[in-house]
Structure formats: structure tokens, C-alpha cells
Design a protein around this nucleic acid. Sequence first.
DNA 1: TATAAATTGATAGTATTACTTTTATTTTTG
DNA 2: CAAAAATAAAAGTAATACTATCAATTTATA
Lengths: 226, 226
Amino acid sequence: MERLMRSIKIGINEKIYLKDPESSDLGKRIVEQSILMIHEMGFESFTFRKLGEQIQSNESSVYRYFENKHKLLLYLASWYWGWLEYKMVFATNGIPNPTEKLRRAIEILTQTVKEDVTFSHVNEVLLNKIVINEYSKSYLTKEVDLENKEGYFVIYKRLVQRLHEMIITVDKDYPYPSSLASTILEGSLHQYFLKEHFPNLTDCDDNVTPTQYFTDLVFRTLTPKA
Amino acid sequence: MERLMRSIKIGINEKIYLKDPESSDLGKRIVEQSILMIHEMGFESFTFRKLGEQIQSNESSVYRYFENKHKLLLYLASWYWGWLEYKMVFATNGIPNPTEKLRRAIEILTQTVKEDVTFSHVNEVLLNKIVINEYSKSYLTKEVDLENKEGYFVIYKRLVQRLHEMIITVDKDYPYPSSLASTILEGSLHQYFLKEHFPNLTDCDDNVTPTQYFTDLVFRTLTPKA
DNA sequence: TATAAATTGATAGTATTACTTTTATTTTTG
DNA sequence: CAAAAATAAAAGTAATACTATCAATTTATA
């Protein structure tokens, strides 16, 4: 699995970048170091100037890969969701029982990223934390409809769609499968955030995981067909 | 109800502002026009300079009320949640049946704000839209723990707490009442956002409301005690 | 292997933002 | 009416988010 993951390239919409960061050493350093820096200082404080210094290159060189830091965030997010999608498809493939399949999917999608599989230069553990703290900012903008039309969110949308399909396979009569799917994905990020910063607003802690909460929620909600 | 609402002042943490905007005509114009402008141009494009022009005053005058636009957002959000809390407490007060009480609370908390009650200078319809699009940005910051300690999020937290209490009154054995409560509040904002920008990721549309989705979800999940 | 092409690095420049400071003017209030 | 407070106007600062230019270096290819 690890070896396999390492050899896969995640297909990201080419309009997100000016030059594919996977195509050069500098590009990989941009991705690698931006993850460390955004995690460290947060998205608002992160700038291309600082990144340039960090990678011992130049601001202007970074701009040749990404138009701006917003596009870089879209890139990192797409990478993350593409990686999760891959893990999910792999883990659920071949499970015949729809209930078990959905259960496994929820597990993959809502669990913490513990090990650094180190898919080349990308630190998935930190990337997961970045997504928890910053992903919303990538779509809560005035440009969202335009960017959606450009296809910048396709991977995330496909992931929700896959979850949606697993839900209706378990219970074809459930009336809100899309909403439930999007609630699981978005809600999971939120529960992780609350656990860290607003522990009173969640039941998740060291002993209770978002995975347990959402698994319980989904299977109380759905009525599996006989 | 409308009359009552108009005569109530929402108690907002005094550390959020430098000078109470309710205390002067200029302050009220700041709040009133900032709501229109943030709704119109989005939070990132909104600046105190532009606001100063709009209210026929000066940037520096705005800075005497709020340290920066982030604090202004915290203020507007507190106002909104305080207003919603008030509506909810009012609407559920005196309902003896816990299930009906919770149902009514969910209804209030997840429904669209349709009418402009025009609680003085605040346009609640637009404020609701601002909260949908911008609220996350108020806490997804590196300063969240500090600001939480300062009490900038108390009203929102109290609202989740109230919902939590109603949930356990309906089903004292449900193991995740805090998570469910926070999921309802946050998830509702998210479903409204999806309905507008990612209709494929939600079942909510002109005919199906987030209220229906969450009411259904909660009552499938909880087992009311006999 | 020479040369062209592409990439990168360094520097400088522009417009805007997010403020702060100062001073003048207006409004409020005792 | 005088003093105090609030507001307005203007200017200034440091940082951001870029763009443009050109030189240096690496890479590709003829």
C-alpha cells in the first residue's frame, strides 16, 4: 500500500498552477515547504516572500508556479482530497457488504492522519491539519462560482459523490444522501477543530473519535435494506 | 415579538470593540454600512478605508470603534448569534414536551432569515448571509485560543450548550450531544452555502430546507425517552 | 559540443492595505 | 459659554501582493 501510494501521481486540475510543481525540484520544494510554513504560521501570515526565503530561492520564482497563495491552497487541498479519495477507494474496493463498505469509507474519511507516509515531498500529517484549519477559506470567497466552473473543486465533489453512492446503496430510501455525505466530510474537519480549540462543543477527545461519532450517527440514521 | 426584539440590546463582550458602536450615530452607521458592504463585496475586499468613504466619514474614525476588520466581524457574528439565541429562547420557552421543544429550537436555528425585522440599524437578512459566508473565518485563525480565552465566542458557545441540553433532555443516553449540537449549527450554515454554490453536494433546494434535513437527522438519531 | 531555449535568481518598482500619528474642526455637556 | 470629547482630514509607515526587467545558470537539442 505504501509503495503503491508513493508511485501514484494525483491528478490535479492544470488550471490551478502555472507550472506543475511536480515537474521540478524547485516546484517540489515549494509544495514541501509551503506545507510546513502554512501549518506553522497559518495561511494569513504566510507569504510568497517568506516562502522564497525559506526555500533559498526567490519570491518571483514562486510566482512562476502559482498565481497567488490562494491558488497554492487550492492545489494543496486538491492534493489532499485526491490522496484521501485514493485511500478510500483502495480500502473499500472489494467489500461486498454495503454496510461494511460504508463503515470502512467513513473510517478512512474521518480518521486522523497519523503516520507520515511521506508520499514523496508531501507531509500528509501536516497537510491534514492545514485542511482542518484552512480548507473553508478556499471556497468561502466571492470567486467560488467562477472557480467551481473552472473545476478547482472536482476532486472534493467526487469524494462527496462517492460517499453519496455508498449511502444510497445501504439505504435507497434515505431522502438526504448528498447532505449526509457533505455533513460527514465537512463535519469531520469541524469536530477535529473543536476538539483542539473548543472542547466543550464536542464529545470528541482522546477517547472518543470523530469516526465513532459519525459512524454512530450514520447508522442510527440509515435503515439498511434487508 | 418584533416590538420586543427592537427594545432589547444584545450584550456583546466589551473587549471586542474600542467604543460601543451602539453608543453613537456614527457607530450605528459603521455597523449598518459594514453589513451592506461585507455582503456586497465579501470580507477580504472590505476595508475600513472604503467603509469610511461609504459612511461619509473617515478611516481613522472607524478605527476608534474597532481595532481592525477582524474584530468587527467578531462583533457582527456575536450580534447575530445573540439575536438567534434570543429568538430561540423566546420561541421554545414554555414548551413542556422536550421533543417538541427541541424540534422548535432546530427550526429556529436552521431556518433562513426571511424578513428584515430591522432591529434598529441591523439588517438580519444580510447578516445571516454574512454569517454563512464569513463566520468560519472568525475562528479559523492562529489567535483563536487567545480570543476564545478573552470570551469572544461566548454567545455562540452558549447557544451550542443550550441545544446540547435540549438534546439530552430528549435522550439522556445519547452519547454525543455536544457534537450533535455543534453539527446542527455549523452544518446548517454549510448546507445553505452548498445550496447556493454546490447544489450537487446537498439535497437542500427550493423545496427541501436544511431545517427538514436536520430535524429528520436528529430524530432518527435520538430515541426519546418514554 | 556548441548554441539556443528555458528556468531561475536578484533587484527594483507599483498599488494597495492596514494601520498610526498629528492636527484641525465640530459637537456635546457641565 | 468654556472645557472636554468626538470626529474629520491629511499625511506617514511598514508590509503585502504582486509585476517587470535583466542577468546568471541550467537544460535541451541540432
